[in-house]
Design a protein around this nucleic acid. Structure first.
Length: 248
DNA sequence: CTCCAGGTTCCGG
DNA sequence: CCGGAACATGGA
């Protein structure tokens, strides 16, 4: 427990944020969580208005969890809508984090037609098989594999991580990223529409996954991923007569 | 044993 | 453009 860093974290709920389905590779450990941000493995634990971070990287943690966002201002800007009021109360402290692009893209490619518990299982299998082993706080953590080691495998090996038909999509995407043909970092400079079009050009990436990557990795806070649950709510609360609910 | 899960893609009308 | 169906896997 010693040698940890403390990071101020007001208006933040670590457990709620990591359990919200925007990221899939953190695991509970004791009172906190272990995981990795890119290559940096760490243990994080919340204690009131602060985070105890083991493994260093305090500034990285602050950036990753978007602790610089003013959650109060963001919530105050919401329209006066009963459903949104309920939502803000229910989700208080849940932040949209800043994920490394590749691991976000890869994770959501595996997410189609899968329950969150399954997505987490696939993430773990990929990490244990292709990620790097690190030690932090006395435990072993596997980082999420970069594109290169995934590009160097084959569909069969990825299927052994329970990816099913998603294996081919992840493999082809990893190859395009690892080869440099698709430079995810440079795409930060693109406007929303162009970025979305490039993301949708990857196999297995459609409107929903592209919007997840834009929102969770590219900081495009206007992106609005519509999954089956959001669609049900939109239909029930706002558009009872529409046959199809889309972002536009 | 069936059903369906935080979608995408392809195909026919 | 729009509705349907296939796609793998595993837990309920």
């Amino acid at each position: 427990m010693k040698h940890g860093f403390s990071v101020e974290a007001r208006d933040f709920d670590l457990a709620k944020t990591l359990d919200s389905g925007q990221v899939f590779h953190w695991e509970t450990h004791g009172e906190g969580f272990v995981g990795a941000i890119g290559d940096c493995a760490l243990h994080v634990q919340q204690d009131g208005d602060e985070l105890l971070v083991h493994g260093g990287f305090a500034q990285l943690v602050r950036h990753y969890f978007a602790l610089d966002h003013s959650l109060g201002e963001i919530c105050a800007a919401f329209p006066d809508d009963p459903a949104l009021q309920d939502a803000t109360n229910f989700c208080r402290g849940l932040r949209i984090i800043r994920q490394p692009i590749w691991e976000c893209l890869a994770a959501f490619i595996t997410s189609s037609m899968k329950q969150v518990a399954h997505i987490r299982q696939m993430s773990r299998a990929l990490r244990e098989r292709f990620g790097e082993s690190k030690r932090v706080h006395g435990i072993t953590v596997f980082t999420f594999p970069s594109a290169a080691p995934l590009a160097a495998t084959n569909e069969k090996e990825l299927r052994e991580c329970a990816l099913g038909y998603r294996a081919k999509n992840l493999l082809l995407t990893a190859q395009r990223v690892a080869s440099g043909e698709a430079d995810l970092e440079s795409w930060r400079a693109l406007p929303d529409d162009e970025l979305r079009a490039r993301l949708c050009a990857f196999p297995g990436v459609g409107a929903k996954v592209a919007n997840c990557v834009m929102l969770f990795a590219y900081e495009r806070l206007r992106a609005f991923p519509i999954d089956v649950w959001i669609e049900r709510v939109l239909r029930e609360k706002y558009f009872p007569r529409k046959r199809k609910v889309t972002a536009a």
